[in-house]
Amino acid sequence: MTPLLQVKGIEKRYGARIGCTDVNFDLYPGEVMGIVGESGSGKSTLLNCMAGHLEPDAGQVVFDTRAGGPMDTVTMTEPERRMLGRTDWAFVHQHARDGLRMSVSAGGNIGERLMAVGDRHYGAIRDKAVDWLGRVEIDESRVDDRPTAFSGGMQQRLQIARNLVTGPRLVFMDEPTGGLDVSVQARLLDLLRGLVREMGLSAIIVTHDLAVVRLLADRLMVMKSGHVVEAGLTDQVLDDPQHGYTQLLVSSVLQV
């Protein structure tokens, strides 16, 4: 089987400082990869390099495109990369406000990607928007409300609906549960797990919350100071941490 995403020797430097360096991994269709590490360990830099928001200084990000097979997204043309960004890729920001248009109604937010790929039938777009609101457990009657009138958890769910409406194959998530209270987090994780399984999505989730990766991720990468210090199956890494930093991370979790 061809990997959906192959990351080969990605490096990003900020001047003399290292953002992330020498990151290699393959992601297969339907697989969820977690990336954990402390603040400043290069998780978000790595994610942005993979998603095309930052240009890496070295390395390749090879994505298995629908039309042309495996292609290096770092060297492909910008129109191609942006087209991927609104069809096969999705990016869920930590703060829903970064990923939503706050002055546009929920329906318009969900419809934007559809219209960006050429849908021009209002009725069809609206039906899809209503359908997706239902899937992320937002009441249909809120379709014309603006996200400013939504709670934090609803905004996050709306952002997820907006991203998944075009049926992407790979979702990048940057701390999707950050800033939400635990019960809302639990619901969101439940929802995400359901959607990932149901749609057969591949996902890369950056987080510092080990509970999130335990629930969602099949595999785990632990980062420190821009390097990957440990990688493996999630349960294996969390239950039998080998690297000193991973041991510290796992033992730092508060037990209630």
Binding site: V104, S105, G108, E112, M115, A116, V117, R120, D144
Partner: peptide
């Protein structure tokens, strides 16, 4: 696509 978002908002 964004231009149509404005028209979508009008209709909704």
């Amino acid at each position: 696509g964004l231009m149509h978002v404005k028209l979508y908002e009008d209709i909704s």
